[in-house]
Structure formats: C-alpha cells, structure tokens
Design a protein around this nucleic acid. Structure first.
Lengths: 136, 136
DNA sequence: CTATTTGCAAACCCTTTGCAAAAAT
DNA sequence: ATTTTTGCAAAGGGTTTGCAAATAG
C-alpha cells in the first residue's frame, strides 16, 4: 500500500513522522500509543509522544485508523483497510483479527435499512475470558 | 429484575450504593460515570465518585455491566442483560440499542468454533457519522 | 465475627493544549 | 507563501489507590 498517495487523497501532509505511524500500524498488530511511540523512536529519536497522539487523532478523523478498546484498560490502534472481526481477550487484552464472514455485511445493511441510518462501518468484537496468549 | 438476587448470585454484597448504580443503569440509557454519580447523589448525597468507579469495575468483572466506547471520547456503561446491537453516532456520541437479529448468534458460534475460542459475548456496533440527535 | 465496601484525598496515569520553530505543498 | 505539522513542557481530566471507618452477611 502506498501511504503517500493515501495521505494525499485525504488531504493530509506526508511527514516522515506520520508515515512512520502508518508503517508501525501496518507492521505491528494493534499497538498501543506507547508502543507506536517507542517503535518510531528507534529510527526517529526526536519524535515526541504528542506528535504520535496528534497523528493518530488526525488519522482517526479521516477514517484511516480505528481505536480498539481491549476491555482490559488498554487502548490499541489498527489501520482500517478492510473490515474484520476482532477477538479480544478480556484477561490479557490481546487482539486477534479474523476475517468477516459474508453474512455480516447483510447484517450491516439490514440494520441500516431497518432503523434508517447510513452505517459507515460495523465493528464486531468477540469477547473471550481466556486465550492461548494469557501467561498468568 | 431483582438486583439483590442478581448480586447474591455473583457473590457481591448488596450495598445501597451498589444497588443504586444498577438502578441508574437500568433506568437511564447508557450513562457516563459522571452521570451515574450525579444521579445517585440526588438521593444519596454522601456517595463518592470513587465508590461509583469501584462498583462499576466490580460489576464489569462479573459480566453484569459492559463498557461502551462511543468514538467521541466518552465512555458509557450498560447493564448486560441481553445482547443487542449498539448504533453509535461518531459526532455526538449517542448510543441507540437495537435488537440482535437471530443470525448474529450463528455468527458468534461460527467464530468460536472456527478459531477455537469460548466466546463469552459478541459486541456488534454500527458506526454512523450523523444521527437525529445531533444538534450542531 | 470476618470479609467486603465505603469515602476521602492524594497520587497517577493518559491525553490534550499552546505556542514558536520547522517542514510540506 | 501559506498552511500544516512538529516538539516541548505544562495543564488538564479521568481513574485508581491507600487506608481507616462503616457495613453486609
């Protein structure tokens, strides 16, 4: 994916910091704000946490990034390219992506039609109490 | 619904403060922490915000209450009696409850079986950019 | 009687803000 | 040249904590 064109299409300037944020989100699965910051600092030591926050917020406003509430207090972030289901572990807060089954799009349409909303996207989250990643 | 038995069944003490929290959640639709606090203070002036926080957290741990992230920064709470879809307006943060269609339970089962998780619940949220409640 | 819960205030995050300098288009 | 973005440090706001007193079972 070409992030520079992506940003251009959203009328956002393609600064190195902003591109780094997108790259980290693309590589790492669902990082927290701190994780994004720490990762970028490795090759870009002068970046500030505030810049990461500002970029994430800008990208969220343009529907490029979504926020995921992990049910264990930590907020994580994800590039929003194509809709998918999140499986979130309530204990350790880990997130796993799973493809949407086709039927969910029908559900989305049905809900929108029935209640007369223009549904921009649908978030489907499966909550589990335990997962293979829990180490305690 | 009998909140006292509900709490007993979860091994939680039925204090007046805790019962108030459940009643406010039951009456008001998706209040914020502050709204719960302000509401309870009207008939229970000595309650502290910390107590509301502690109770909400305890009730969340016992799967009696769920947290809803409204996409506009505010966190709201809901009694979890029966699963339903939330329609959340990104602009004003309002939440509307809509019954689940039967098909979603099949979806939940399918996801659990396919990826081998014991899915405790499924959250389905439809995100809209605008709604009739938006007043600006 | 024992374990849990309450209330208070302080501590503790995480997130946002203001502003001048730097960078992007 | 204009507008956006950056980085810093400070402010802000929501949430948690510790502890002694009160309460529930």
């Amino acid at each position: 994916m070409d992030f520079i064109s992506l940003l251009k299409s959203k009328n956002l300037k393609a600064t190195p910091q902003r591109l780094s944020v997108l790259e980290v989100l693309d590589k790492n699965g669902h990082p927290t704000m701190e994780e994004i910051y720490e990762e970028i600092k490795r090759e870009f030591p002068s970046i500030s946490l505030a810049t990461v926050y500002k970029n994430i917020n800008t990208l969220r406003e343009s529907n490029t990034v979504i926020e995921i509430n992990t049910q264990n207090g930590k907020t994580r972030y994800d590039i929003y390219v194509k809709p998918h289901t999140h499986i979130i572990c309530k204990k350790c807060g880990s997130i796993r992506d799973v493809d949407f089954l086709e039927s969910i799009y029908e559900y989305q349409e049905e809900i929108g039609k029935k209640w007369n909303y223009d549904v921009k996207r649908i978030d489907v989250t499966a909550i589990v109490d335990n997962c293979p990643l829990c180490t305690h």
